[in-house]
Design a protein around this nucleic acid. Structure first.
Lengths: 234, 234
DNA sequence: TCAAAAGTGTTCTTAGTACACCCATGT
DNA sequence: ACATGGGTGTACTAAGAACACTTTTGA
């Protein structure tokens, strides 16, 4: 019993059980006041036509994050976006082709900037609320990542990554309401965000709306990066 | 480019790059008013004599959590303890023997109950505050798990897992002060814990102390499991 | 002039923080 | 009797929640 341990003894890796390592990306977007996730149709006979996360095998020369960014880039053309590892999923039979341990990441992208590269398979944005079944254990992975996102936006203002550069406070509130699945009080919401210094008033307004136009803001990345990020607390 | 994708196409795993999968356990204990972690001495020439986390290769018939519980059991004899996956660490050169992706778990154990099974290597409890260098990337893993623990105890009353079945409020406060590395106000601390219903008064007192003996409590697991666990907020 | 959403302050309630004295025990 | 840490309550402060009317635009 553990006479040869990987942390304490010189062992030969090839003598041991090995598995394929993959990354799976939960790519969130925000459109039409709904939180969306980018999914592709699986061709595996076991999951024919069911939506699947975007993932791939990790290459020998890549660390996990690099592989996840590669998947994101290959599918959306996006490079510098918010991404965070969530956890590993390693159920014995989670993949029909054999033992595959996958590391789940979620990322937050501006859905307008994504240039979807559909190839063989259907690649689409799905409203998170409307997703029913998924291939593999991907439903479980999605749920876990979504919960992580909910905890994250309460704690730090990462939601901006899902919006266009210019946005109104209504946009921002709609975003939070969609992610957290709650209704928020408009005045208290505004108060909270103005109290932080993360919003920059662009002195611009919405155009072509048939009601009073809203002021537009952008996110102040500099202040965010400096400041030790305090909780928002919804 | 991704013409053969693991999520969308039937592939043969053996045609792809594979890696060893390991689990590493950050086993926390609490003793002498200090947060401790169980470490073993590494014999690898690269890290000779440096302390290492307890870990092992994942077996073909084990999922990740099962492997982590096995490591815990083999080293401490403990079975039913609090454990949580944190994240994967997959740096290309993190292990000198080759590509090893490790999944980090932390667990909270009653240090008195642990029956350490030292075999070839030195296995000891180290005060978290006093640890300097560690083998591999284990310092990074430990730091990440410790931060996760700090966030967790603020949010949910998991600290009980580190204490004996019977404990005083002073014990509990010492525990929180050690984990969070802060001083807490005694009256406010008591108020907070009595406001939750998680403490059961045992109507017993400390013995053989040369001051007024403290009342002893136990944790009410039933209430905790039922209730939707609200934040403690320190 | 109407419909639609933007913008704006105050009060109330709750949770958190700060703080000092008496009590029970062993020596 | 004294040294040590246990046990307790109140006042202040900050944050969050509830809530309604006026303004600006396009149709």
């Amino acid at each position: 019993m553990h006479t040869k341990n990987i942390n304490t003894h010189r062992i030969e890796i090839r003598d041991y059980f090995m598995a394929a390592i993959s990354v799976d990306c939960v790519i969130f977007g925000f459109d039409e006041n709904e939180l969306k996730v980018l999914l592709i149709e699986s061709d595996l006979k076991e999951y024919k036509g069911q939506p699947s996360l975007l993932g791939d095998i990790v290459h020998p020369d890549e660390d996990l994050e690099t592989a996840a960014y590669r998947v994101l880039r290959e599918r959306t053309g996006l490079e510098d976006v918010f991404m965070e590892q969530v956890q590993a999923f390693g159920g014995i039979n989670r993949h029909p082709a054999g033992r595959v341990v996958t590391i789940a990441f979620y990322s937050l992208v501006n859905i307008q900037h994504a240039k979807l590269k559909t190839q063989d398979n259907e690649l689409h944005w799905h409203a998170v609320k409307d997703i029913t079944d998924m291939a593999f254990d991907h439903r479980n992975i999605l749920d876990t990542c979504y919960q992580r996102l909910q905890a994250k936006v309460i704690d730090q203002p990462v939601g901006f990554n899902l919006l266009p550069r210019k946005f109104s406070l209504r946009d921002l509130q709609n975003l939070y309401e969609a992610i957290l699945d709650v209704k928020l009080d408009r005045r208290n919401f505004r108060k909270k965000f103005f109290a932080m210094d993360y919003l920059v008033d662009l002195n611009e307004e919405e155009k072509d709306v048939r009601h009073r136009p809203a002021r537009l803001y952008k996110f102040n990345h500099d202040k965010y990066n400096l400041q030790h990020k305090k909780s928002l607390g919804f």
